[in-house]
Simulated assay, not measured.
Amino acid sequence: MAVELARPSYPFLVTLPGVYPPQGDTWLLMTALEREGIRPGADVLDLGTGSGALALRAAQMGGRVTAVDIARRAVATARLNALLHHRRITVRRSDLLSAVGQRSYDLVLCNPPYMPSPATRIPTRGAPRAWDAGPDGRAVVDRVCEDAPAALRRGGVLLMVHSKLCDPAATVRRLSRGGLEASISARAHIPLGPVLLSRMTWLRARGLLSADDRYEELVVIRAERT
C-alpha cells in the first residue's frame, strides 16, 4: 500500500555531523508507527536510532522507549534530542541487540543500513556506516531478521524499513522462518538520493536499477509474533 509520508509534530531535531538525518525512510517508518499505534506503557525498542526521531515519536505516543545505536555520535544526538523535547528515553550504545540482553518488547522499530555497496567491507566509522550494507544491502537486515523473533513478546511487532534494492521478499521469508507472521505493509517512492546517484553505473550493471529509474521504492516490513 502506497502511503503519504508522516512528518513529526516536534519542530526541530539536532543532528550532529556524521549522524544519519531523518529523511524519506524515517518518515515512512514513522507513518507505519502511527498506523500501528502504541498502548500506554508499551515497551518499545528503536534499533539504529540515529537522530532519535522515531524514538521521540514513540515516546510521544506513550511508549517506554529504549533506543540503541552503534555510533557514539548517534547516541549523543538521540540523548540530546530527548532532553530538548523533554522525553524520557533510555539511549544506549549497542551493536543492535547486544546491550539489551534478554529483554523483550511489544514493538521493535528498525531503520537499518540497507544500501547496496560496491565495497565488500562494511564501514566501521563515518557517515557511510549509516547506509552501506555490503553488495546485496543485507548485511544488517539479515542480522535483524535473525535476532528479532527473540526480542518480541507474544503479540509483539517488528516494523522495519528498507529499500526494494535489498530484496524485501527475502526479508519476509527470513522473518517467517523465524516464526513471525511477516508481510510488506507499506510502500513509498522517493527520488534517487546522492548516494544512489553516485553508484548508478554499478547498480545498473547488477540489474538493480534501469537507465530510466529516477525513484527508489521503500518498503516497511511488518512482522508479528503471534
Score class of each variant (00 low, 15 high):
G18F: 06
L13F: 13
E34Y: 02
F12V: 05
G48C: 12
D43H: 11
L47I: 15
G18I: 10
G41H: 08
G37K: 12
L29M: 12
R39D: 13
A42M: 09
D43A: 14
L28W: 03
G52C: 08
D25P: 11
G52K: 02
T26L: 03
L28S: 01
G52T: 07
V14G: 00
P22S: 06
V19P: 03
D46Y: 06
S51V: 06
L16F: 11
P21I: 10
F12C: 04
G52H: 04
R35L: 12
T15S: 14
A42G: 09
A32P: 01
G48R: 06
G48Y: 04
E36A: 10
G50S: 07
R35M: 08
M30W: 05
R39L: 13
F12G: 03
T49Q: 07
I38N: 00
A32E: 01
A55S: 14
L28F: 02
L54W: 03
V14E: 15
Y20A: 06
G52V: 12
D43V: 05
G18K: 03
M30E: 10
V44H: 04
P40R: 11
P21G: 08
M30F: 02
Y20R: 05
L33M: 14
G48A: 06
M30D: 02
V14H: 14
L47G: 05
M30N: 03
L29A: 11
A32S: 14
P40A: 10
L16N: 04
V44N: 07
D25Y: 04
D25W: 05
F12P: 00
I38F: 01
A55D: 00
T26I: 09
L47M: 15
W27G: 03
T15I: 13
G50D: 02
P21V: 13
P22L: 08
L33A: 09
F12K: 07
D25I: 13
M30I: 09
E34N: 01
G52Q: 04
L45C: 11
W27N: 05
V44F: 12
D46T: 11
G37N: 09
P21M: 03
G41S: 11
T49D: 08
G52P: 04
S51N: 07
A55F: 02
A32M: 04
